[in-house]
Design a binder for these strands. Structure first.
Length: 436
RNA sequence: GGGGAGUUGCCGGAGCGGUCAAUCGGGCCUGACUGUAAAUCAGGUGGCACUGCCUUCGGAGGUUCGAAUCCUCCACUCCCCA
């Protein structure tokens, strides 16, 4: 038996991780904290990760814990994903500065459906997916207080870092009670699926240990917890958001495959060991070889390319990944306008389909007017400023003056202008047919 | 219930009657150098018909030639006492 108190603080290494199966995860940067774990992973029975359906898609922040599940499944542990149809209606205070608005039931259910499908497609093996609404939904408030609440003291919850940090800014009883719901999930899975391990992001440590505590109180048996680090980049900022601060979603409706691919492709060299370790399904040795090859010629961006391809293929499929990769090569390859114009029709169609495209209705416009009218930019000042700074190119040619008429640039295939904003952002401006 | 402090641009945070579209820092954007990397340096960061004009400093009124700055009311946040 171990002391829970000693395990609650994040970031303090609690003991030596000697088991080889854990060591394999650790060198992939997938381990932040763990309770003492059994030597044989099979003793864990099953492992689960919980995801609350607070949006209609997963984003890449959800991937790391699922990767834990992936590797555990490889080690022979049955993987379970809990879609938190019940808990999403309450709101997890972990890592949140302020109270969250309550989500309507129908919305949560729609989200849960979408996430279930995504999770299923994400892991290459049979996976049990359950919704905690199926057991928490039936619980009456009184029964919950009697059967669950009785076993966890307020002071125990108050000691949690996630609760602590919210005491000043305010936390409702609803969110305060959240850890109990998640604890009960763990208990339920322990009883019904023989699940003894819960995994999650580092921010879930408090909730996980609460579950372990509940299981111990109710059954006298031991359960385990394992968290992966919340990813940060080498410069200390949060990983997983675009430069603009938007999430990178798995749903193509929210983040296009092209943008998804580009996101991975742009990662900094210094972050690659971590990113490949965490996200790639390649064997560790293969990753090391790749990093080695990368370091001899970093300008080739071998590692970024490999990572971007693998992730895009996993999420959006092999053929989309190929297409997006080819498109990126053509668009960023630095080819001249002539080369771009001579691209085969089928590839050109692909390029246009994959990249963001903005439409205008007529050509009798200045560059500035056209870009604003198409919706690509929010204001004319923004475009003018960009031009002034030399950051705007159309059809591979730098725009020198804001008043330049758009038709000073000959459109590709009669209707397309390739717009480059800075060195990374590229999109199409398209002349829409009058009737269309 | 009583007393006090506050609400400014993406964030932090100055400004306390005119010279304020608002110091500064962070973030973000762009350029140079490069490799769609990092670091560094430089510039930019409300809108427009751009040497000018228009709309911004919690909301609504008011005082004044003139307000982010003063007054009144309202809303919200925080702190202290009970």
């Amino acid at each position: 038996m171990y002391s829970l108190a000693g395990l609650q603080r994040k970031g303090c290494p609690t003991f030596a991780l000697v088991q080889p199966w854990i060591e394999a995860l650790r060198r992939r940067y997938l381990v932040q904290d763990a309770t003492p774990l059994p030597e044989n992973p099979k003793a864990l029975g099953a492992a689960y990760v919980g995801i609350d359906p607070t949006a209609d898609s997963l984003h890449i922040g959800h991937l790391a814990p699922l990767q834990l599940l992936y590797h555990l499944a490889q080690a022979g542990i049955q993987p379970i994903a809990v879609v938190g149809g019940a808990t999403a209606r309450i709101g997890d205070p972990s890592g949140k500065r302020s109270e969250r608005p309550l989500l309507p039931l129908e919305l949560v259910q729609a989200h849960a459906k979408a996430l279930t499908a995504q999770i299923q497609n994400l892991l290459p093996f049979e996976l049990t997916i359950v919704d905690n609404l199926s057991w928490l939904g039936a619980f009456s408030f009184l029964d919950f207080l009697r059967e669950v609440g009785k076993h966890i003291t307020v002071s125990y919850l108050l000691a949690k870092e996630t609760i602590q940090s919210r005491l000043e800014s305010g936390i409702s009883f609803t969110e305060f009670a959240y850890p109990l719901l998640q604890a009960y999930d763990f208990y339920y899975l322990f009883q019904h699926y023989g699940c003894r391990l819960q995994v999650g992001g580092a921010d879930q440590w408090g909730n996980i240990t609460t579950g372990i505590e509940l299981i111990r109180k109710l059954t006298g048996q031991e359960a385990y917890g394992l968290t992966c680090p919340l990813l940060t980049r080498a410069d200390g900022t949060k990983f997983g958001k675009s430069e603009r601060g938007e999430n990178i979603w798995l749903s193509p409706a929210r983040t296009s495959p092209y943008q998804f691919y580009q996101f991975w492709f742009r990662q900094a060299d210094a972050d690659l060991p971590k990113l490949l370790g965490v996200f790639s399904w390649k064997p560790f040795e293969e990753i090391e070889a790749l990093l080695q090859a990368h370091s001899t010629a970093p300008e080739k961006r071998l590692a970024q390319r490999s990572l971007a391809y693998e992730m895009t293929a996993r999420i959006h499929g092999e053929s989309v990944a190929q297409s997006v990769e080819r498109v990126s090569e053509v668009i960023f390859g630095g080819g001249t306008l002539e080369e771009l114009a001579q691209v085969p029709e089928s590839l050109f169609a692909q390029i246009v389909a994959e990249m963001p495209t903005y439409c205008i209705a007529q050509v009798q416009l200045s560059v500035v007017e056209a870009l604003v009218a198409s919706g690509a930019f929010r204001s004319k000042s923004e475009v003018r400023q960009l031009i002034q700074q030399g950051g705007l190119s159309i059809n591979r040619q730098r725009v020198e003056a804001a008043e330049t008429p758009l038709n000073a640039y000959v459109p590709l295939r009669g209707a397309y202008w390739l717009v480059q904003r800075g060195k990374r952002e590229r999109f199409w401006l398209r002349l829409a047919e009058a009737g269309a």
